[in-house]
Simulated assay, not measured.
Amino acid sequence: MQSTASSKHQFLRLVDGEQVRALLSHEDALQAVREAFVLHSRREGRVFPVVREALATGGVFGIKSGDVAAQGLLGFKAAGFWPNNRAHGGEPHQATIALFDPATGRPLCIIDGNAITTMRTGAAGGLALQELARRESTRLCVFGTGTQAHIQVEFALRLCPSLHLVRYVRADGSRDAKFEARFAGRCDIEHTQAGSAAVSESDIVITATPGRTALFDVAAIRPGTHFNCVGADTKGKRELPEGALQRVRLFVDDRAQARQIGEMQWATDADCMEFGDLLSGKETFHRRAEDVTLFDMTGLALQDLTVARVVCERAEATDTGTVVAWPW
């Protein structure tokens, strides 16, 4: 991403969501997100303080930013959640990523952040399944059927070949034909209204909702289960029941951030390991069959930046996107 030629600073590249999806593969996302975790573990990449604020409009607005000095990588993601968008047929999640030249402060690329957020969060969940879930896992339960539930299940089926049953739970108790159709033929997919029972019968549990209350009973947690918890990313949000974090081997992407906006905000003194330390080899974890593992996923700015860098480089190489004049 390093670019100091003044001629390049005369232009700004814009890459929309469809273009991101065409340029970025699942394997690209896995590699870039793994890199982000390792950079964070080695403190070779910085994560700046997160902004996450409620708005008078009913939305939530946030900024995640950071840099990797050795790579000339600098940028931010402005993102949030506007539930009222649904009433107008719009997507409630909105995100935009900007990359900058750290030597000059000039913007290099503006990228649709929704597509990148979806892929990088799915990839983070996939990496956690590879490292933490039991290899013989066959049954998965997912709470939610939105965009993030889709991508989490997609990565799970790609990376856990023994999975053959997916049960899903929705807040309103209804079926989701679109969700079922996406995975039909790749696994047995079942709708259930009994969330606690589904958790107790599953090897992997994914929570991907915007909720603020526990999704299941703490008594449903069984030995050997792995949890990927995606939804708690703002103060006041939670998906887990009281006492859950005290019963698990807990992994987080960043301790301070997890205590601020993740599930750890409800148990700030819980013992945990940063997932990047496991990937970098700084820490070790040998799973026992009876262990319950849980990844509290709040998302790192470095994940957005490393994935966005891949997209930006591909866009430049293929002349994808819209280039507009942006003179000094």
Rank of each mutant, 00 (worst) to 15 (best):
V51E: 07
E290P: 03
L163D: 05
P107T: 11
W326M: 13
P223Y: 09
L302A: 04
L300R: 04
L240P: 12
Q152C: 03
L279D: 09
A256L: 15
N85G: 05
T209Q: 08
G75C: 13
Q71F: 06
E283M: 06
W326H: 15
L250G: 10
R170H: 02
R158W: 02
C272G: 07
F216K: 02
V20M: 04
T207V: 12
L129I: 00
R120P: 00
R222G: 01
V307Y: 14
A177Y: 13
L24Q: 06
R255S: 02
G122I: 09
F285T: 04
R259W: 04
L132E: 03
Q10S: 07
I111A: 03
S7Q: 14
E18Y: 01
S162R: 15
A177P: 09
F11Q: 00
A87E: 15
T320W: 11
R212Q: 00
E283D: 11
A220L: 00
I221T: 13
L12G: 10
D172K: 10
P161C: 08
G185K: 10
R34M: 01
L159F: 11
L294C: 15
L127Q: 09
W82T: 05
T96C: 04
F100C: 01
D67V: 10
A219G: 11
G276T: 04
N85M: 08
K235W: 06
S202A: 15
L279T: 01
N84E: 13
E263A: 10
F275E: 02
T118D: 03
D296V: 02
G224H: 08
R309P: 07
D16V: 06
G262C: 07
G113E: 10
S280P: 08
E180P: 15
D319S: 10
S3G: 12
L99V: 06
A308I: 08
P223G: 04
R309G: 12
G17H: 04
G185R: 08
R134W: 08
L245I: 00
V311T: 11
A54S: 14
L30C: 12
L127F: 03
A5T: 13
L132V: 05
A208I: 10
A181R: 14
T284P: 00
S65V: 09
F183T: 11
R13I: 08
L12R: 07
A315E: 03
A69C: 08
R288D: 09
A258P: 05
D67T: 15
T4G: 12
I204D: 09
T118K: 05
R259D: 09
H191R: 02
F183Q: 07
F179Y: 15
R43G: 09
Q71T: 00
P241D: 08
E154Q: 07
L129K: 07
M273P: 04
V142N: 02
S200C: 13
H93W: 05
I110A: 13
F295P: 01
S196H: 14
I189H: 00
R21C: 05
E239W: 04
P102F: 12
H93G: 11
P327G: 01
H226W: 10
R34A: 10
A32V: 03
D254A: 03
L23R: 10
Q31F: 06
L305C: 14
Q257S: 09
C272Y: 09
T293Y: 11
G173E: 10
G236W: 12
R182T: 03
L39G: 05
L215H: 07
T318H: 13
